[in-house]
Design a protein around this nucleic acid. Structure first.
Lengths: 280, 280
DNA sequence: CGCTTAATTGACACCAGTCAATACCCGTGG
DNA sequence: CCACGGGTATTGACTGGTGTCAATTAAGCG
């Protein structure tokens, strides 16, 4: 079974949907929703979009009239420097809402980092709901806080850690937001679904350095390289230790995991027993 | 007059209060308040504290039962790495509220970066107000957004820019949150009220590099070094250009400036015509 | 005036980015 | 089935910037 899944990943290449939620397709094209506390944010199928990788979602200056809910995939917030360098400031994950409050200033853009399914929500309506519904506010500010935590980590590791430590930490964190197939022996196979260039630009380093560091990690027996996009993590604890995220791993991943689980449950049980507010 | 003020800065050294608001002392020891929209957050004098530099305000893991309003001074959010390196993740300025929502995780601490006046607010009460008062929510989320913008800038410049560019940008930005005395000829004298070490740890570099870069800037005629804490900025536009903050300078400083102005006005006009909710 | 501390300057080394060459993967076409 | 080509990943050689360490100078303070 694990073999079969691996196979499908290999066949589809980098841009894949989450493994383990075949039910995902059940709601595709019908309705996309997200429970926020007791409330439910949704838009109907007309406002769902499947985007290929590197598709622009929010462009710098222009204030979009829509807010976006990520159903699947990963978005990146990036900014280009005049020297041609690009820095990815943040990644956004399924269940998160982006584009509310003009959070993205001139020069910064939000794009899909892989094939993603997005759902547009009317901004006005969302604002109204935010003001009325306490549980929505709670969930939203929790999201915000998660994003800030990630940003804190990135800032900290860019400023205080070396590329090798950052990469180790990222690999460890990836187990929470990329396909990670646990094996019987406790190790697991990580399927990197981001382009290496994106990872390099996120971690403030280069693809060459990543390649070197990954090889060094393999040589020291912490990971095993299956191919350029699949690593078997032999020693996750030492990755987290070397990456200096011992104490904050859970805190940084719990939100993303929870939201993903919610989306999966939603797909599985259907939406008959949930309240649904719609922005259209 | 400008001379007199300079003198007083020199005499008091690094740890000074904002110049230009002598009225500040009027409310000291009586009451500290901050207008949030129509509402007003305040605590009475018993809950105001003057802290010297390097005083711990919020310590990592332990959840404080209080929220803090900064009346004057600057706080720093920092995190220590095991290699002894420290990264400052964010600075907080007068008018800002810190400590709400367990924003600061284990390992991270909030300390005063200079002499600061803080006002403690009851957490429960603040939560209640946040839920009831729309204008307070608006102001608070605006603050949050400002902080995130600053964090974005820091992340971006740590990842994509060199130390010299970061330092130039920081000098330019400093004109908005440190004493900056405009001179008739359009230049101005910046009084750096943070320790150099703090700046180094914020910008992910070292005091030596800062010293070298500052000298290079002086040699190229962009700034003039009066003493180690006072620089005359001869060419602010070229600082912002070299620091790559042309388009975002206003956006990054307007919030801090506005809040400072509000505090000054408040001190000047007194509080007789403002509504006051008190957390105690 | 001398002590302590911070700021500056200098010398050095090394990490990591840059550029270039090679190897690898994968699809195409013969 | 193999040969070929385009693109990506990897490896290598090199260099420059920047952190590190140490020495000097300046500043603050009793």
């Amino acid at each position: 079974m694990a073999q079969r899944i691996m196979k499908s990943w290999e066949m589809k290449g980098r841009n894949l949907v989450w493994a383990g939620n075949p039910a995902d397709r059940k709601i595709s094209g019908i309705r996309c929703e997200l429970p926020f506390g007791k409330a439910m944010v949704c838009g109907d199928a007309r406002h769902c979009e499947d985007r290929g990788p590197d598709s622009e979602v929010i462009s710098g200056g222009a204030p979009s009239c829509d807010v976006w809910l990520i159903r699947s995939g990963i978005l990146r917030l990036q900014r280009h420097a005049s020297n041609g360098r690009r820095q990815i400031l943040s990644l956004f994950f399924p269940g998160e809402i982006v584009g509310f409050e003009g959070e993205f200033r001139e020069g910064a853009t939000v794009e899909t980092a892989m094939q993603s399914s997005l759902c547009s929500i009317d901004r006005r309506w969302f604002e109204k709901m935010m003001d009325q519904d306490h549980s929505l506010r709670t969930e939203f500010s929790r999201q915000k806080q998660d994003q800030i935590d990630r940003l804190y980590w990135l800032t900290w590791s860019l400023g205080a850690l070396g590329p090798d430590e950052r990469i180790s930490a990222f690999l460890a964190l990836s187990t929470a937001f990329m396909p990670y197939q646990l094996l019987p022996d406790g190790t697991g196979v990580l399927s990197v679904c981001l382009e290496i260039k994106d990872i390099a630009d996120l971690l403030g380093t280069t693809v060459e350095t990543i390649s070197r560091v990954v090889r060094k990690l393999a040589d020291s027996g912490v990971i095993e390289i299956r191919d350029s996009a699949h690593f078997r993590l032999l020693n996750l604890p030492s990755l987290t230790a070397f990456g200096k995220i011992d104490g904050i791993f859970d805190r940084m991943t719990i939100g993303v995991s929870r939201r993903r689980r919610q989306l999966e449950n939603l797909a599985a049980i259907g939406s008959e027993n949930t309240v649904c507010f719609c922005g259209r």
